Simulated assay, not measured.
Amino acid sequence: MNGIGIDVSKRQLDVGTTDGKTLQVSNSRSGFAELDLWLQGHPAVQIVLEATGGYEQPVLDFLHNAGHPVVRANALRARKLAQGLGHMAKTDRLDAYALAKMAALVKLRSYQPLEPWQREMRDFVRARRQAMHALTVARQQQEMVGNRELRRLLQANITCLQRTVERLGKRISEQVSKQPQLAALKSMKGVGPGLQAVLASYLPELGKISGKAVASLVGVAPMSHDSGTMRGKRSIHGGRAEIRQVLYMASMSAMRHEPRLRDFYQSLRARGKEGKVAIVAVMQKMLVILNARMRDAQGGSIPA
């Protein structure tokens, strides 16, 4: 059976199959309807789209609701597969074909839409992260200015951004407090509303899959680099950076206030592990523990 890939841009969808069929439609409701009709004549084992900053979300939801086996793939992973297949050039049509090959060759986790409250929370989390980035840029801009009048004008922008970040933080805390299923997360010291919101909205798999799988999704599971008798240095890469950034800050707090994690970190350092390596290990352990607590709170079991 065919694999189908869809390259998504703001205005259009380029569709490709492993047997060479192609289709181009607009990234709109009318385009989705045309795509749905076309897919009925082209059955596929999987339909793979890559994450493109949110432009893929409407078509993902449409295809899922229409009953198609749709998957959202990591963009870096898709690009590396394309290069491995010999596609060094990059066009929308080539990208669609590479995604189709991924659909045919790799069994991926089916797309599961977020609950309405998770979508709203993700919007607020994203807005706060963007405001914090803008605040950092504004402060750097002010530091490079010597004129007192201009510094005052720039300070007004900084003050406005600070208030926005604060207001968004309060709204996120309120949203978290309305979701009792997240109470299991705050049982660990260092896990505040910010991390709870990020995990709830960017890692809905938490508590539903194994701790090892969760660590891999986030990108804190060290990858082997061995060949023959050579044992290379383990490293992390890929994963969901939105989670990793917040998890890092939470791990720094947890290492000071959570005895279990503090002892774990100190034992790694005593064995000669580098500081950054030990911190990543703490991040991974935090995720594994939080995953187990969410599983227990939901009354489920974690797959092997």
Rank of each mutant, 00 (worst) to 15 (best):
L168P: 10
V280L: 07
L23W: 09
A250G: 03
R269L: 04
L49W: 07
A82T: 00
I4G: 06
T17W: 08
G20Q: 04
F264C: 00
G192C: 05
G207Y: 06
L81T: 02
E274T: 13
V191Y: 15
E258V: 04
V8I: 15
Y248V: 01
K10I: 12
R244P: 04
I47Y: 09
Q196E: 12
A96T: 07
R256W: 08
L35Q: 05
L85K: 07
R269T: 09
L60I: 02
A104P: 13
G275E: 11
T22C: 13
L261W: 01
R151I: 04
E34L: 11
L287D: 06
D92F: 12
R163Q: 11
L182Q: 02
Q118Y: 00
A75T: 11
G192R: 09
I236F: 05
K186C: 15
I4L: 15
Q140V: 04
P58R: 10
Q181Y: 05
V45R: 14
E56H: 06
W38S: 05
Y248N: 08
S177K: 08
V198L: 10
Q46Y: 06
L39T: 08
Q298F: 03
A292G: 10
H42A: 13
V48W: 06
R231K: 10
K212P: 07
F124M: 10
D36Y: 09
M283L: 02
A127P: 01
E115Y: 12
R152G: 03
Q83H: 14
A250V: 02
G16M: 13
T164I: 15
L290D: 01
R72W: 14
G300L: 03
V106A: 01
L247M: 02
E115C: 03
Q284F: 10
L135T: 01
G54L: 10
A156M: 12
A200T: 09
S187K: 15
I302D: 11
A44L: 05
H68Y: 15
R77H: 13
Q245V: 15
E34P: 07
K212N: 07
V145F: 04
Q83T: 10
R167Y: 08
L114N: 14
R93N: 07
A82C: 01
G194T: 14
S9V: 01
G146F: 10
E120Q: 12
P204A: 00
P58N: 05
R293V: 04
D95A: 14
G67I: 13
Q142L: 09
N2Y: 11
E258Y: 11
R171P: 06
A270H: 00
R260I: 03
A184D: 01
R262H: 06
E174A: 14
D36L: 10
Q162E: 15
Q196L: 03
R129T: 13
E242C: 02
Q284W: 10
A270W: 05
I47A: 02
M223P: 05
S267D: 00
L99C: 02
R262D: 00
H68V: 12
E274L: 11
V218F: 08
R126L: 13
K10A: 13
I236T: 04
D123N: 08
Q83F: 15
L81K: 07
